[in-house]
Amino acid sequence: MSFHPKMAYDATFHKSTRTLADNGPVFTFTPENRARLDEIVTRYPADRSRSAVLPALFLVQHQQGYITGHAMRHVAEILKVTPADVEDVVTYYTMFYTKPVGTFVLSVCRTLSCAVNGAERVVEEICNHLHIKPGQTDASGTFTLIEAECLGACDRAPVIMVNDAWQELQRPEDIPALLENLRQHGEAALTGCHHVIEKK
C-alpha cells in the first residue's frame, strides 16, 4: 500500500536504498596474518571473539590496503559474527578505508593547536603539489590526503601522520621535499615521533 492515496504504490523512497559493501576481489588472510589473528583471539575470553574485529580489520588493511565486502565476510566467518556486525564497525571508524588509497596516506592534523601553527597552509601546499583536494588520491596513486583531527602531539604542531608513522613540525615549505623523499625512500624518510630520541 502507499502512504497517501495520491501516491503511486511503487514510489521509490520507502524502499531501502542501502547498498552493501562491494564484494571486491576474493580475500583470504595469508598464513602469517591468519596465525597472528588466531593469537589475538586468545587475548579475549573464549566466547568473545567479536572483540578481535578491530585487530582483524587492521590485518586486512595491512594485507590489502583497504577493506572490501569479501574481506568483511571472511573476518565475520573466522570470528563467528555476522557480516553486518563487521560492516557496522568498518563504516564507523575513520582509520578503516573501504576504497583503495595511495601508497602513502597523509593525514594532516587540522585541530586547534596545529591550526594556529599553520596546518591549513600545509594542506594547501600538499593540494597544490599533488593537484588534489583533501579526501582524494593523486593521479599516480602514490598519495592520499586526509584532514585528520588532533593526533595527540600538539607540542610538535603541525603534525602529519603518514600511514602509521609520524612527521612532526611541518612547515609549508617542507612539503615538496617531504613528498619527494617519500617517493624515493618510503617511510624511512620520516622524522618519526620526537620521543624516540635514540633513533636520531
Partner: peptide, 8 residues
C-alpha cells in the same frame, strides 16, 4: 596564524 611557522 596562517603564515605562522611552527615554534618547535
Amino acid at each position: 596564524w596562517r603564515a605562522r611557522q611552527p615554534v618547535g
